[in-house]
Amino acid sequence: MDELADLTEKLVAIPSHEDETAAGDAIEEWLRAETDARVERDEVGNAFAYKGATDDPDADTLALIGHHDVVPPAERQTTGDGNAGEYVVKRRDGRIHGRGAADMKGAVAACVLAFRDAEPPPDRELAVASFVGEEVGGTGARHAIDAGFVPDRAVVAEGSTNYSKPGVTDVVVAHKGRRASTLVARGSAAHASEPEHGENAVYRASDAIDVVRELDAPAATVSGESVTGSLAVTIVEGGETWNVIPERCEVTVDERTVPGDRADLARAAEAVPGVEWEVDQDLPPMACGDDAFAEGTLAVAREVHDDLGLDAPEHVVKPHATDAGWLAEAGTEPLVCGASEPGEAHTDTESVGVDVLDRCYRIYMGVAERSF
């Protein structure tokens, strides 16, 4: 456990919100020093390692996956400006405090240690990967997938702790995606004292909003777990001054998508003249369709919890998009299981429990060695 905590502290101390290079260097150097695996680094900074049946074209590939980029730190979490100063890292009361401790350098440390120590079945290629750009839309994952990195199965080490109940690390079988859209309403300007001479874009936008309010939110069922999306107008911007009929109004829509279903947002544009629908960002949802993998991973997690005298974890649904969505879209069967607890990631008091990291390490080891 000390080795895991020490490696976590080392990685957390390395700034990686503007430039992930140094953190990726540290992961690559550790893998080369501590393993006999084939270690690779691609042009965007993703780090990979492979061992096991790497020469068998029929071998299945199981990957342990994390990311080493983080969101910008709070002032209290860094010793200097930008990537010039190290992040502040403190260990107290069994927890490691610092930007990226929970999301997700602690889990990356657990992944690489489990990769080193695991003895996979003879017909399995075991991989570990740490991506860049997860916090900005999965740029690293998408680059890796485009270059051919599509493992058969993957455990993405994002947070799943304390979802079903306090004190357990659950296994996520599905998560929501996020589609950010803009409804652009166009009209024609006129003096506000003669509104009949113009077409009010705000009114058209209001009519489109009424259509959005009547749309059904997407919903699905994965491994017996209900996944319910959502749909909400979050920003309305239109008009330039008080005495001119507005000729343009933009409506921002936040949609949480689910596997296999999306809201019919195109209807809002089709139903109202002068309105267009534009998709700004589309982070895919995730669902694991491999029941044996999902059940086997949960069995491993329950064995680990039982050995530690903890309550049993469950299959759960995660509300947040992760790199698992990109992998699922590419054909990988992914699950999410990791140390971060709700309310820890992206906060100025971010921390992770050393005992939870150890629990994750044991789960990753067990999954890497188990046949499915």
Rank of each mutant, 00 (worst) to 15 (best):
A205F: 06
S160P: 10
A312H: 06
G106L: 02
L62H: 11
S230H: 02
T297V: 08
M104Y: 03
D348M: 02
E329V: 04
T8K: 12
G353K: 12
S181E: 11
K176N: 09
D81A: 12
V236W: 01
A205L: 03
V352K: 12
A110H: 06
V272Y: 04
T347A: 10
H175S: 04
P195Q: 10
R92F: 01
P166V: 06
V300G: 08
S193H: 05
H67D: 09
K51H: 12
S226A: 15
A268Q: 03
D152T: 03
P259C: 11
K318P: 00
G138C: 11
V236K: 07
V222P: 04
V39I: 11
E86P: 14
A301Q: 09
P218I: 05
S206C: 14
A101D: 00
R370P: 02
A328K: 01
W30T: 00
E43T: 13
V222H: 08
G229T: 03
L298P: 05
I96S: 02
N46Y: 09
V89Q: 11
P313A: 10
V171D: 02
D358M: 04
E158P: 00
V44M: 05
L62Y: 11
A107M: 03
A321W: 15
A118E: 03
L310W: 10
V171H: 04
S206I: 02
E43F: 05
E240V: 09
A368C: 08
T169E: 05
P246Q: 05
T79L: 15
S340N: 07
V112Q: 10
G331C: 11
K318I: 12
V251C: 08
A201Q: 00
T161C: 12
T8D: 04
N162W: 11
A294E: 05
V356K: 13
N46S: 14
H191D: 07
E295N: 13
G224E: 03
V156F: 13
T169G: 06
V258K: 07
I245A: 00
A174W: 13
D261R: 08
V253N: 05
R370F: 07
G159I: 09
G353M: 04
A118R: 09
E29F: 00
V171N: 07
G177V: 12
R99L: 09
V236L: 15
E3N: 12
D58F: 11
G274S: 07
W242S: 13
A37G: 09
G274E: 09
A110D: 00
V258F: 08
D42K: 12
A217V: 14
D207S: 10
P195W: 04
W242C: 02
L126R: 14
E329D: 14
V39K: 13
